[in-house]
């Protein structure tokens, strides 16, 4: 297969690393391999943050992103770091509220209310998981069922229900052709 390059970007503390981790788990469940890298600075809160995945069925030649297939942006702060990595085949998902000026270009851009929906679910911090659900709905990177399985394995048990709600919310937020919408319960 051709490697797929995915970036989650935003500001520190938005749970981008968790997003990448859960998606990695889901990819592994479908026998795919990842190379995962992230911004590495001494601070863990605030500031530009990114988590990158290069997906392949073998260990990829080059493990860092060079041209993004998917970009998820959760904070205006991080828009600039992906300049030059987007092309006409890229798909961008940006938070409607926090990203006022999403990247401009010939690519598909989806401005979606991740944070708003998260607040409605009762916890702003699951915006990342909502975005992940939306990404899978648009991108067909892994099966939704696999993603749910990975969410179950990747989040602390006491937050499981909330995260399952979040991933469902994200998945239903967008509809793409050929995707069956189906609610999956955490039980």
């Amino acid at each position: 297969m051709e490697p797929i390059e995915i970036r989650f970007s935003g500001s520190g503390g938005q749970g981008l690393q968790l997003c990448a981790k859960i998606l990695s788990l889901a990819l592994n469940l479908e026998n795919l391999r990842v190379a995962f890298s992230q911004s590495y600075e001494p601070t863990s809160r605030g500031g530009v943050s990114r988590s990158d995945l290069v997906v392949d069925d073998i260990t990829p030649d080059y493990p860092l992103v060079t041209k993004l297939d998917y970009l998820v942006v959760l904070d205006q702060l991080s828009v600039g770091i992906s300049n030059g990595l987007l092309n006409k085949d890229s798909v961008v998902l940006a938070d409607k509220q926090l990203v006022s000026e999403p990247p401009k270009g010939e690519f598909d851009i989806h401005s979606l209310p991740f944070v708003e929906q998260a607040i409605q679910l009762g916890n702003k911090r699951v915006a990342n998981i909502i975005a992940l659900g939306a990404l899978i709905s648009i991108g067909n990177i892994v099966k939704f069922e696999t993603l749910v399985e990975a969410v179950k394995a990747g989040v602390p048990p006491r937050f499981l229900d909330l995260n399952i709600d979040a991933v469902n919310t994200g998945y239903r937020m967008v509809t793409s052709p050929g995707v069956q919408l189906e609610e999956i319960k955490s039980s």
């Binding site: 391999r33 190379a35 995962f36 992230q38 260990t59």
Partner: peptide, 11 residues
């Protein structure tokens, strides 16, 4: 290098 040190790969 630091890239290899902090890189996570499926192995």
């Amino acid at each position: 290098d630091e890239v290899i040190g902090h890189l996570v790969e499926t192995i």
